[in-house]
Design a protein around this nucleic acid. Structure first.
Lengths: 89, 89
DNA sequence: TTAATATTTAGATATACATCTAATTATCTA
DNA sequence: TAGATAATTAGATGTATATCTAAATATTAA
């Protein structure tokens, strides 16, 4: 995944709040919407951004879509970012 | 420094190239300009962005402005980003 | 003090993005 | 199958940003 895309995805506060919510457990869009100061469509847009950046995944469960953190991608992102910031590189 | 600002600053490829150049040694604007595919004014704008994000500092030496990495801020940025991505948080 | 060099600032443009309301799609249930 | 619920898509708007050329500022040197 391009690092620019990962960093842009993380640069938005509401998207970081989504990531924080998903750290605790997988959640439906509606459940996250209750905890965020944005409308459903805006939340949907942010989830799409996180998904295209590879940071989250989704699955349908009945009427709901459940999102979860993509742990391996988060790990990979952390490594790439450390590479940028590592002075000894 | 707000983490959003740090991440936005790092999200641009040319700004990451600037950081890479400054890892090796302090450099003047002109020297960096020779190594980047952008005009002087665009470079100046990126340097300003990095400076406002606290990632670089500058000093005048004669006609030239010399930029350097702000190592403590880079360290702090790395910690904050790891906090975001740390699943156990 | 005039000319040359180095960098920034001003102003313009095109693109990306965060947000909203309204409309659409998908699923479940009565 | 009709209505209710969940989520996404469409379309609009305002703001931010990456880029450029041209102009302004700061320093040095002749």
């Amino acid at each position: 995944m391009p690092i620019s895309q990962t960093l842009s995805a993380l640069a938005d506060k509401n998207r970081r709040r989504i990531i924080d919510l998903l750290k605790k457990k997988d959640r439906s869009v509606g459940e996250m919407g209750d905890k965020l100061p944005i409308t459903g469509p805006t939340l949907s847009h942010h989830l799409d951004t996180l998904k295209r950046a590879g940071l989250v995944s989704s699955r349908r469960e009945g009427q709901q879509i459940i999102y979860s953190l993509n742990l391996s991608s988060i790990e990979e992102a952390a490594e790439k970012i450390m590479d940028i910031l590592d002075q000894k590189k």
